[in-house]
Design a binder for these strands. Sequence first.
DNA 1: AAACTACACAACCGCCGTGCT
DNA 2: TAGCACGGCGGTTGTGTAGTT
Length: 274
Amino acid sequence: MEIRSENEVLADVKKGPWTEEEDAVLRSYVETHGEGRWNSVAYFAGLRRTGKSCRLRWLNYLRPQVRRGNISLEEQLIILELHSRWGNRWSKIAKHLPGRTDNEIKNYWRTRVQKQAKQMKCDVNSQQFRDTMRYEWMPRLAERIRAAEFKGQPACLPVSSSNDPIFDNRGVRMAELESGWKDPSLMPEVSSGISSDSSDAQVSPVSGLTESYNPPDGLTGGPGSGAGYSGWDMPGQEDMMSSELFLDGGDSWDSLWNEENVWFLRQQLSDDHF
DNA sequence: AAACTACACAACCGCCGTGCT
DNA sequence: TAGCACGGCGGTTGTGTAGTT
């Protein structure tokens, strides 16, 4: 049998997507021998991969604790909050989201949040964008979490990326877009002055965050509470964005989310997570 | 039906810190 | 203490797929 040095094996390294066979080999090896010494793992398991690649595959995909797929409302809220505190410290943020990897959170941020900033034509690190997040998106996420609990649904309700009206509105009909948030007059105060290309049919996954929103009656005590609960629905229901209440944009945004709401969110976050 | 586009996610790359020799 | 290997992290790119034209 041919004996090859570790360097020789690594020089013959394979890249690209992992196959099921490779996954099985790596999983079996790590379960038997444990994590760490990734270059040795690659070598002794007979994988034509770098140690780094093995480590990444295990941590981000094969590890039993890894949760993949829909990011819940609570997780979204935590990500927004922690990112506002720590910036792009993905691994640090991931530590507060059990089962989520830094890579997944990073991807989430780039594909959803950062893109929204781009569409708003402002820098993701700008004060304007951060204010929008903190004073509009996050309170609304908190509201939806509380509303879900109010309705007896789990607060960690998974939100499909394809039907979450806050972070994804690909399912929204174009007519609704035309009459809804695409109308600059319905945009949040903080976004005023930001041009919105009405010819752009593409809608960012997070565009819904700038949607007009009426909190459920009795849940916030805020100015929007008078709209009642009936027109406000749970995430995951397809036509949420088509709701008249959701699109009416009648309230001015700076008054819709008052200090009390923001205070409540901060209290919740500090109680729950820190 | 084919081409195109946008999205979500997987994977790689380069840099840096740490520990060992 | 310098050099090296390794692991961790953040940025970036690649790929598959679903939706649109």
